[in-house]
Design a protein around this nucleic acid. Sequence first.
DNA 1: AACTGTGAAGACTTTCACAGCA
DNA 2: TGCTGTGAAAGTCTTCACAGTT
Lengths: 212, 212
Amino acid sequence: MKNGDVPEAAVGRISLYLRHLEQLRREGRQRTSSGRIARRLHLSDAQVRRDLAYFGHFGRPGLGYEVDGLIDALRGVLGTDKSWAVIVVGVGDLGRALLRYRGFQRRSFRIVAAFDVAPGKIGRRVGGVRVHALEDLERVVTEQEVHLAILTVPAAAANDVAGRLVDAGAEGILNFSPTTLQVAERAAVKPVDVGASLEQLAFQVARKQTAR
Amino acid sequence: MKNGDVPEAAVGRISLYLRHLEQLRREGRQRTSSGRIARRLHLSDAQVRRDLAYFGHFGRPGLGYEVDGLIDALRGVLGTDKSWAVIVVGVGDLGRALLRYRGFQRRSFRIVAAFDVAPGKIGRRVGGVRVHALEDLERVVTEQEVHLAILTVPAAAANDVAGRLVDAGAEGILNFSPTTLQVAERAAVKPVDVGASLEQLAFQVARKQTAR
DNA sequence: AACTGTGAAGACTTTCACAGCA
DNA sequence: TGCTGTGAAAGTCTTCACAGTT
């Protein structure tokens, strides 16, 4: 395994644990166990314990895990114990929806600026965030110390914008544009493709049908 | 392996291949090879060949793969050679953005109806799709033979709506609500969590920083 | 020479099963 | 008794490497 012996797949589940634990906290629960977590998230208890143990000794034999403590620990693991400045590039329907989404705050991401090329959008505010001209991208990324960008531009523009983002210092790109980005290796890219997700769902459904 | 010896991970990449092949077709290319595909999608050539070979003998030694033929074959694999009726439940910012997104058509998904509880939204049209009262859910799912649903309601309502969807006959749910659904096993659920994706990106970025 | 398809090896991930703590 | 953390085994997925086709 590559990094401190932590499988990539386990990292992917940490967000899931965190979301569930925050739910428990809202319900006033102070303690839980690998078995309870597993049941809710459709995993095995062994997997939950193994995943959590990759990052430290968070539980106590016989008692389980303390909700508050585990939340803090997992936030530390993900790096979301500190706040991250994020920008949104592309203010179409999807960009607008993301700018208005209030769920990022709770997860320590604050959207500090948006960008678009349409003169009619530049200067306006969406979800409390100012829309800038694309020309200002480099300046804002530098000045506001932006590390993460959400890319929601048309596929044809995606690689150009992504290259500019990375050159300006962005280190992570959440890519909603329906194309595979070709950027310098120092940047991390995470693709999100709703169409592809629907296709995979269709495949699973079709498979279940034939299995019958 | 569970299903005809096809790993889940390979299925996940089929959409990616398809998107790339359609790009090639638009560019007028008629043929490609595992090595070329791999370079563009950041995979290994062996992986591309293995993935495609799970589903059939699509290539020709020495020549590679024919773009058109491979597109048709992969659509058949995913089940998107036929059209799927889809509904969107929850017409908030995200639901609205998805209703307006024109990319589903090309992938054989047609959104036939939307649902919400807000009286001000019911009866209106968004992206050419009629918004119905949530009460009409069961009737529309049955009448229009809806197999797939996109769920974009608040977390608190998600399980209730999901249960109704499955009872009404829906077989797949693309879940944007930030909660893990508890539905009957006969239904397939695919979660999409943008917040979680951002968290994983943050983790990768933080890791790269410490590696330095 | 340029490729595919695929056994076999290797790498990674999950599950089992249990010693030991509360 | 109820639980964690973890070696060891089992299972899954990826890569290597090459026989065979065009």
